[in-house]
Each structure stands twice: as structure tokens, then as C-alpha cells.
Design a protein around this nucleic acid. Structure first.
Ligand SMILES: NC(=O)c1ccc[n+]([C@@H]2O[C@H](COP(=O)([O-])OP(=O)(O)OC[C@H]3O[C@@H](n4cnc5c(N)ncnc54)[C@H](O)[C@@H]3O)[C@@H](O)[C@H]2O)c1
Ligand SMILES: NC(=O)c1ccc[n+]([C@@H]2O[C@H](COP(=O)([O-])OP(=O)(O)OC[C@H]3O[C@@H](n4cnc5c(N)ncnc54)[C@H](O)[C@@H]3O)[C@@H](O)[C@H]2O)c1
Lengths: 220, 220
DNA sequence: GGGGGCTTGTGAAATCATTCACAAGCTACA
DNA sequence: TGTAGCTTGTGAATGATTTCACAAGCCCCC
């Protein structure tokens, strides 16, 4: 049993993406629980929200230490703090959004990001008609300023919301300028340099998985 | 080796979601390949695009039959058709979007859906200010018409883009009216009746996985 | 202070997914 | 017709993730 009393990095071997995704979910439920004034929560209750099992919850947490009290459960407050720290949310992250079109604009104004510690520090577009547009306090900037702004503001994360054809060129530019993580919404397979993390959100694929399930009866 | 010469349903035991997700990706690459005029493609080429391995590609396909020619590879045209059929994309699907806010409006106008056989047949909102708005040919309708429209137009899929607090009530309504699959964008855990498929897209989670990776160095 | 009732943390077992490795089959060409 | 050079399809092996099952620990109450 580990003794995690001081702020620190967690011992990481290799954590499955599925585990990290569930931790993010648990965090959301814990915040709801905290808002409702509950003091403690058991792995079973947490599991019920997330559609998983209590063993899964305990195993997920066990990779990072030991956060509960036997017989009692977890302190909502402490577990919230622990998961925030595990996920790296104790300090805010700066995000730029490349492409101020329909989806880029929606994301730039999305309060679900800022409320979780992701601050959008810049939105970029190449169309003169879009540059200067106000999005919830942010002003769309010309794409030509990308490099300069990245050097100045040092954002860690870039969200790519340009048409598929333009995506790779822009990823090359932002990673060359120092971006370390990319969230891609364009339906194009992208490559990034070593040391940069890339994730893709593909909404057409989500619909296609639904279509598969509807067609084949079985749960995928 | 199976003989898939006639349109039919595929023999399904239980297919992993990861397999279905990759099939959707392969389909995208195949379409690009077809556009470029290539006639055949090998599992290795397909794998290179998708960041996977040739064995994975062949295994994925093997769950559904045998679509290639040894020594040669796959006919781009035939494999495209086969995967479209596996995914259930041979006939179009009708989709409604519930919540004509920022993200709902973006999705309603997204051409990446219609180009893949998903037709948005209705967009709904409860705000009088939004009802009547034109989104790319579609007119936003009052949420009170939901049930009537579902009975009339028989859409199979509902996309939920309302605030988290409103999501469960609307899912209950659309599933009661006959919707069989739900794609949820609201950050709320939803429940659906038996026989209805539910998927969730959670963008904050995607950013949090990036934050975890940035914080913990290792690849998740 | 001891026992009952819960709940955690965690190895071991079971299940699920990916990778390996190779026989079988196709084309081309002599 | 036979052989060389590829690539598929697929059981078997490996690796990863989830589930099981239970000892250890905590709280409460008698
Ligand atoms: N709209 C959606 O709901 C949706 C959903 C999923 C994925 N996507 C994907 O997201 C991307 C954007 O979609 P959208 O609907 O917002 O399209 P859009 O046309 O509204 O926006 C794209 C924006 O990118 C800008 N752009 C183009 N080249 C650029 C460059 N070199 N530098 C900076 N900006 C540039 C354009 O000027 C435009 O404003 C597309 O790849 C699309 O496939 C969109
Ligand atoms: N904007 C984003 O980029 C983004 C990203 C991810 C997830 N989300 C989620 O998607 C949902 C919508 O986000 P948004 O940014 O578009 O918000 P929004 O406020 O712009 O849109 C929500 C819309 O839903 C409508 N609505 C509310 N109650 C309704 C009801 N009962 N029936 C019909 N319509 C109703 C509202 O009138 C509004 O137009 C939220 O749950 C949000 O967390 C948004």
C-alpha cells in the first residue's frame, strides 16, 4: 500500500487508454457528488454511474495508489483531488484552435473546456472574412500569426478543425512551433513527429458504429 | 473460405468495437484509393494508412468472410462495397438532431455525414428564438413536434446536443417514440431502454487523455 | 475490547484482442 | 506445365484487460 501524502508524480508503467478514459468519467461523477454534498462514495456507487463494475473502479485506481478506506469507501474530496492530479489537471492547459469554421467556433465557445482547466488562448483562420470575428471574448486571428503566437503564449495543445486537405500542413506547422499534443477533428489520417501526442475524434465513425449495431443486431 | 456472392447479412458472433472502428477507417482509405484510380490494395498498404498492421487488417476482415485474392490483394471496388455492407451503409439512415445550439447547428450542417449516407431529417430546439432558423436547407423545428415527426419520418438515429440537464428527458422521449440509436454529446451519463444503442462523444475526456499523456510522459 | 458488517486493494483466473507464422492460392512468365 | 514471387486467411501464441474472489482493514455498536 502506497502512502500518497505529498504532491508528486505517480509511478507509471503503462496505463491503458480505457483506464484513463474511465478516470475522466469518475471525475465527472465525483464532481456531481461533491456538489450534492456527499462526503464519501464507494467503488460500487461510482461504478453504477459509469456503467462499469466496482472491481474495475478499484483496479483502475490501484494503478496509481490507494485512495480509499476499507469499510468506508473514498472521500469524495480526496479522490477528486487525486484523480485531477493523476490526469494532470492540477494546473491549467493552454489550447489553440486552428480553423474558426462551424465546429471550431463551437469548440472555442464551449464552456465545458474552460470549466475543466483548458483555456483557449487563440483561434485561427485563413479567411479574411473570419479573421476579427469575436467568439465569446476571443478574437479570431490570422493563421499567419500561428508561429509567433505559439512562441509567445506557449500553448501545449492544438485542436485541428480545418478541412481534411489542410490538416496535415497545419499540424506540421504547429508541431514545428512547439505544440506537444494535437486533437484532430478532420477526417484525415495525420502524422506527427516523435514526442507529440495525437488523438482523433471522428464523428462519422461514431455514426457508422451505430449503423453497424443497428444492422447486425448484436451489441458490438 | 466463404462465398459472398449475394447481398446478405453477415454471420456475426461478437465483433469488437475496435474492429468496427477500424473498418470505418479502412473504408475512408479505400474511397481515397478508389478516387485515385487504384484497382487493388494489399492488407499492408491499408494498414500503413491506418497505423495498424497487415495481420490486423486481415483478421478484421476475416470475421466477416474472405474478400481478397491471394498473391494479389483486394479489389478496391469490391472491398469498398463489402465494408459498406458490413457496416450497414448500403441504405441511408435518417438522423434527427435534438438541440440546435452551437454544436447541434455545426453537426446539422456537416457534410461529412450526408456524404456517408446519414441524412439529417430534423433539427429541434425549445427556444422560440431558434425555431425557424435555417441551417443549410433544414429549418429548426419546435421540440414539441419531436414525437409527431419521429412517427412520421421514422428516423433511426438521434443525436443529442442539448445541455446535460435536459439530455435524459429528451432521450426518454425519443426512444419512447421509436428511436433505436442515440449519439450523445452532452456530458451526462444516460440510460436507454433495452434494445436501444447508446454511444457518447465526450470532448472534454479527449482533452483530458491528452493532458494525462503530457503529464505522465508515457504513451497511454 | 471484541464481533459484525462493510468496503478496499490485489494477486490469480478468465476473457478478450492482437500478433505471429505459415500453408494455401493466385499471377506471371518461361 | 512448372516454378518463383507475392499475398491472403487463419489457427496458435502472445499480450492486454477485465473479472473474480478473498484477506486485510475500518467503523460502529454492544
Ligand atoms: N461541422 C461539423 O459538425 C464537423 C464534425 C466533425 C468533423 N468536422 C471536421 O472539422 C473540420 C471543419 O469542419 P467545419 O464544418 O467547421 O468546416 P468549415 O468550412 O465551417 O470550417 C473550416 C474552417 O477552416 C478554415 N481554414 C481552411 N484552411 C485553413 C488554413 N490553412 N488555416 C486556417 N484556417 C483554415 C476555413 O476558412 C474555415 O473557416 C473539417 O475537417 C470537418 O470534416 C466537422
Ligand atoms: N459547443 C461545443 O463545442 C460542445 C462540445 C462538446 C459537447 N457539447 C455539449 O453539447 C451540448 C450543447 O452544447 P452547445 O455548446 O451547443 O450549447 P448551446 O447552449 O449552444 O445549445 C444547446 C441548445 O439546446 C437547446 N435546448 C435546451 N433544452 C432543450 C429541450 N428540452 N429541447 C430542445 N432543445 C433544448 C437550447 O435552446 C440550445 O439552443 C451540451 O451538453 C454541451 O456540453 C458542446
Amino acid at each position: 500500500m502506497n502512502d500518497f501524502t505529498s504532491p508528486q508524480t505517480f509511478p507509471v508503467k503503462h496505463i491503458a487508454e480505457s483506464t484513463v478514459r474511465r478516470l475522466s468519467l469518475y471525475l465527472r461523477f465525483l464532481e456531481e457528488f461533491e456538489a450534492k454534498g456527499h462526503e464519501t462514495i464507494s467503488s460500487g456507487e461510482l461504478a453504477a454511474f459509469g456503467g462499469t463494475t466496482s472491481a474495475q473502479v478499484r483496479k483502475d485506481l490501484s494503478f496509481f495508489g490507494s485512495f480509499g478506506k476499507r469499510g468506508l469507501g473514498y472521500s469524495v474530496k480526496d479522490l477528486t483531488a487525486a484523480i485531477r492530479e493523476i490526469l494532470g489537471l492540477e494546473h491549467p492547459w493552454s489550447v489553440i484552435i486552428v480553423g474558426a469554421g462551424k465546429i471550431g467556433a463551437a469548440l472555442a465557445q464551449y464552456r465545458g473546456f474552460s470549466s475543466r482547466g483548458f483555456t483557449v488562448v487563440g483561434v485561427y483562420d485563413k479567411e479574411p472574412a473570419r479573421v476579427g470575428l469575436k467568439l465569446d471574448g476571443l478574437v479570431v486571428r490570422p493563421e499567419s500569426e500561428l508561429e509567433r503566437d505559439i512562441h509567445r503564449l506557449k500553448p501545449q495543445i492544438a485542436v485541428i478543425t480545418v478541412p481534411a486537405e489542410a490538416a496535415q500542413a497545419l499540424v506540421d506547422r504547429v508541431t514545428a512551433a512547439g505544440i506537444k499534443a494535437v486533437l484532430n477533428f478532420a477526417p484525415a489520417p495525420l502524422t506527427v513527429p516523435d514526442g507529440v501526442t495525437l488523438r482523433a475524434v471522428n464523428m462519422a465513425t461514431e455514426l457508422e458504429i451505430l449503423a453497424f449495431t443497428l444492422t447486425n443486431g448484436t451489441t458490438v
